[in-house]
Structure formats: structure tokens, C-alpha cells
């Protein structure tokens, strides 16, 4: 059987990540994702769920994060949505990748990695939710 879609609904709690990662590994094996695509998939979801949990709910309210993956012919389509405070990752400053070890700033790489590894990337604020949509190549 071909799994062509998979959906997750998570609380804004990092403890949700471990079972999610296991499920992504199973999905990757079931649809035989190339190793780089499988790694990019986990990375994209890991980075954005971490960001949402860490920065989206400064008042510690309960929140909901949804992740959906569609297996298309030539790419994976991923939608990550959270009801945290508005955050447009496209406005995040690009890290300076050129400095020496002493000059390189620690942190700030997550959004950069995902934007660079995705073939398309979009953000919208919709009904009080941050919605990130991205595509990953299947021929990586």
C-alpha cells in the first residue's frame, strides 16, 4: 500500500517530538524516501516544532501544532501550523556563514537550513495560526 498522506496533531510540548520522529522514520521507510530527503523531512519538522514551542507561547498557554505531509509524484509537501504568536520565518535574519570559528555566532541556523534545503518555502498568518508550507525534492 502506498501511504500518500500523514497528519499529526501535537501539544506545544517538546516531549511530543520523540514519537513524532519515530513515526517519520516509519513513514520514510514505508515510502522508501532517499536518505537525504528523509533527513530533510525530519529536520524541517524538528526545527519548526522546536521554534514554535520555544518562542511561540511566551505566556505558557496550551497550544496546538499540526504537521501534515503529502507524498506527491515529484516532491513531499509539508505544512506545519501552530497557534503561537505570529512569527514570519522569512523575516529571520540570514546567518553570516563566512566568519571564522571565533566570529561565527552560536545559533540561528534552523530556519536557514530548512529554507536552503527546501525547493519551495512559504509562510502565511491565517486565523491566528502560523502556517509554513514547504516542498522537499524526492530525487535528492
Amino acid at each position: 500500500m502506498i501511504i500518500d498522506r500523514i497528519d499529526f496533531r501535537l501539544a506545544n510540548d517538546l516531549a511530543e517530538l520523540e514519537p513524532l520522529v519515530r513515526a517519520l522514520d516509519c513513514f520514510g521507510e514505508a515510502v522508501a524516501l532517499p536518505p537525504k530527503t528523509a533527513h530533510r523531512l525530519t529536520l524541517a519538522i524538528d526545527e519548526f516544532v522546536n521554534n514554535a514551542v520555544d518562542y511561540g507561547y511566551p505566556d505558557h498557554r496550551q497550544g496546538e501544532i499540526t504537521v501534515s505531509i503529502r507524498h506527491r509524484v515529484e516532491h513531499l509537501e509539508i505544512v506545519i501550523a501552530d497557534d503561537g504568536d505570529a512569527f514570519d520565518p522569512l523575516t529571520a535574519p540570514a546567518p553570516d556563514l563566512s566568519g571564522s570559528i571565533e566570529e561565527r555566532r552560536i545559533g540561528g541556523l534552523g530556519v536557514h537550513l530548512v529554507r536552503t534545503l527546501a525547493t519551495s518555502f512559504a509562510y502565511r498568518r491565517e486565523d491566528g495560526r502560523n502556517v509554513v508550507t514547504l516542498a522537499l525534492a524526492l530525487d535528492a
Partner: peptide, 13 residues
């Protein structure tokens, strides 16, 4: 480094 991890090192500089 396995290729998917090497890729992350490359993209991060």
C-alpha cells in the same frame, strides 16, 4: 559524516 548529515554541515557553512 553520512551524506545527509554532511549536507547539513555544508549548508551551515
Amino acid at each position: 559524516l553520512i551524506p545527509p548529515v554532511h549536507e547539513v554541515f555544508d549548508v551551515s557553512g
